[in-house]
Design a protein around this nucleic acid. Structure first.
Lengths: 143, 143
DNA sequence: ACCAATCGTTGGTAGTCACCTATCATTCCC
DNA sequence: GGGAATGATAGGTGACTACCAACGATTGGT
């Protein structure tokens, strides 16, 4: 990457470029095992928060409800996710992880960790921890 | 943004999400004054490195040569950039900034600085500096 | 002088992405 | 019980992106 100091000085530009490169590598790896970043985010959400309505998942992950349908169809088609009507509110679907879903998630996480190691290779352990903390704060501030 | 700890723990995911949000805000602001991120990157490159061939610009900014043509057409249409044949190698175009281009770039930079302030608001001045340094190192390591 | 490579350009494709609208079933509010 | 709001779904759109193939002009190697 050639040096363009006046661009390099813009933090949002750096963030955008580095983020895009990282996203791309992660997406490629996940694609190799039949997943998208979105799939992984959904599985992670379910693992952390337990069975949920689609609307909650969509809101948390910034996925449009109508887009979520397709992603869930794919996961369900591989038995990684189960959809059943919520008995307490029959408009809702109660989406939950299956054992196969948990296994798949573990695989995704291993790939994600590998990409982290790859992308953050230039940083020391301490710097890497610091970066994670700073990014976490920025992330929490979104919306 | 709801809390999904196992996703938040993935640095590349944070990078990707924060970067995308930042990119979006910057793109919106620039769109308000008739620019894209790509335009700004090109103007910045020319300001930093002086008159250049299209191929160099494309390589440095990771823009496909065929995509660069259109962006330069737009800038040239507004007299922010000049294209002339390189007398030393008549295959090349010598692309250079015009005074109007410099003025436009200054405006872009002001908007970019404002977005930086906005996105990085949660960080102290010290943390912000640190983040910029870490991102800079990761950026230099791309490709 | 000729062949291969380079530069800019044209035109097209495929994927992703964030939307938006409309519809049906269900529930909530009064 | 009736009207408004909500959840999931289907279907489609426009913007942007990253590509790729092909071409004419020009240059460099030998």
């Amino acid at each position: 990457m050639e040096t363009v100091p006046s661009l390099r000085a813009i933090d949002v530009y750096l963030l955008s470029r580095v983020g895009k490169a990282g996203r791309r590598r992660l997406a490629e790896r996940l694609a190799g095992i039949g997943f998208t970043l979105r799939h992984m985010a959904i599985l992670s959400y379910l693992a952390d928060r337990g069975p949920s309505a689609q609307r909650e998942i969509g809101r948390a992950l910034a996925i449009d409800p109508s887009d979520l349908v397709g992603a869930l169809d794919e996961l369900q088609g591989r038995d990684q996710v189960r959809r059943e009507r919520d008995p307490d509110d029959r408009r809702r679907h109660r989406v939950s992880l299956t054992p196969a879903g948990r296994t798949a998630l573990r695989r995704c996480r291993r790939h994600a960790a590998a990409v982290d190691d790859e992308v953050l290779a230039p940083l020391s352990a301490g710097d890497r921890r610091k970066l994670g903390e700073l990014l976490g704060r920025l992330f929490d501030d979104l919306d």
